[in-house]
Amino acid sequence: MKVLILCTGNSCRSQMAHGFLQSFDPSITVCSAGTEASGKLNKKAVQVMSEIGIDISQHTSDPVGKYLNDEWDYVITVCGGANESCPAFIGKVKKRLHIGFDDPSHAVGTDEFIMSEFYRVRDEIKARFHEFYLQNIK
Rank of each mutant, 00 (worst) to 15 (best):
V3Q: 09
L6M: 01
C7F: 01
C7H: 01
G9L: 01
G9V: 00
N10I: 04
S11A: 06
C12G: 02
S14C: 00
Q15R: 05
M16W: 09
M16V: 04
M16S: 05
A17S: 00
A17P: 08
A17R: 03
H18N: 12
F20G: 03
S23Y: 03
F24G: 00
P26S: 06
S27Y: 05
I28T: 00
T29F: 11
T29G: 05
V30L: 02
A33L: 05
G34N: 07
G34Q: 05
A37P: 07
A37T: 07
S38C: 04
K40N: 15
L41T: 02
K43T: 12
K44L: 15
K44G: 04
V46F: 08
V46I: 13
Q47M: 14
Q47F: 09
S50K: 14
S50Q: 09
I52V: 15
I52Y: 10
I56K: 14
I56T: 13
I56P: 13
S57I: 11
Q58I: 10
Q58R: 14
Q58E: 12
Q58F: 07
H59N: 14
H59A: 00
H59K: 08
T60D: 14
S61G: 09
S61A: 11
G65M: 12
G65Y: 14
Y67W: 14
L68R: 08
L68A: 10
L68D: 08
N69S: 10
D70E: 15
E71T: 15
W72C: 12
W72A: 13
Y74L: 10
Y74Q: 07
V75I: 06
V78I: 13
V78H: 10
C79S: 15
A82K: 13
A82W: 08
N83Y: 11
E84T: 14
S85F: 08
C86I: 07
F89M: 09
F89T: 06
I90Q: 12
I90D: 12
G91C: 06
G91S: 04
G91E: 09
V93G: 09
V93S: 12
K94Q: 13
L97N: 07
L97G: 03
H98N: 13
F101C: 10
D103G: 10
P104V: 06
P104M: 06
P104Q: 03
P104F: 10
H106W: 03
A107W: 10
T110W: 09
E112R: 02
E112P: 00
F113T: 03
F118I: 08
R120D: 03
R120V: 01
V121D: 02
R122A: 06
R122Y: 02
D123G: 02
D123Y: 00
D123Q: 03
E124P: 06
E124F: 00
E124C: 02
I125G: 00
I125Y: 04
K126W: 07
K126N: 13
K126F: 08
A127P: 07
A127E: 15
R128S: 06
F129P: 07
F129R: 01
F129Y: 13
Y133I: 11
Y133T: 03
Y133N: 07
L134W: 12
N136W: 08
I137C: 06
I137V: 11
K138L: 13
